[in-house]
Amino acid sequence: MDWAGTIVQGLLLGGFYALYGIGLSLIFGVMRLVNLAHGDLIVCAAYLSLVLIEVTGLPPLLTLAIVIPVMFGLGVLLQRGVLNRVLGSGPMPPLLITFGISIMIQNGLLLTFTADTQRLPAGSLETASVPIGGLATVGVLPLLNMAIAILAIIGLQQFMGRTDLGRAFRATSDDPTTAELMGIDSRQIYGLAMGASLALIAVAGILLGMRTTFGPSDGPARLIYAFEAVIIGGLGSLWGTFAGGLLLGVAQSIGAAINPGWFQLAGHILALLVLAIRPTGLFARTRDL
């Protein structure tokens, strides 16, 4: 087995999972909510881009200019119109609502686009690659994805740490009641957080659609990868989630190299091992979330 090549490919694959995981981590951090439709919304973004490409003839990366704001708006709408209505009645209602939405999206996509798998036409970008250190050649697309994931984390950290709105996010995360007393509208904060989460996964969805095929029922697997990135990395740490995503990709890549049937299984087993040995994740901050 070509270990170096397998690991490099795994890391690049993991970059996608990292981006999924950051979106999940963000909303959990701000409002302790797990969006079970997370994966289906990733697939939704890819289909949205597909439609735009067919209608306008734009290249996939340019459709981001439309898909990101649309997904952001959808996130704000989902949070403010639906999920904010069940705030304060425990963790069950939002879970069941997002589960219902997940089933609706899957079946809606199946009705509209049939079960055939699709791919976003990326042109020359699909195959473009650069050699790295003589070890392996790596695709430009996964590198771009990795760069976006890193930029997203740095951007989020700067935003949270340095801006007034970011401070409002952190205050709401720590204690929504007290934050409200200070004049922060937590419902608005939650809306923005969900919007940001969907904007992130819009990018992930389109990049993934350019790299590989996707179908209406691919959402749950995406949700699970996002979850595993968070579990491996540790709750409450964006860099942890990033590392968790990369490790998940490497595990899958090594699993597949040993036996093609073990691609997903190897990732799941890594996540369970981390849960068994270090339940707080490998890079968790001590803060209890």
């Binding site: 963790p91 699970i224 997903q264 299984l265």
Partner: peptide
């Protein structure tokens, strides 16, 4: 796992058994 992450975890278990 707590709350929502417990839920996703149960799904992972089902996926592992399927695989």
């Amino acid at each position: 796992l707590r709350g929502g992450y417990f839920s996703v975890g149960t799904w992972v278990v089902a996926e592992i058994l399927r695989l």
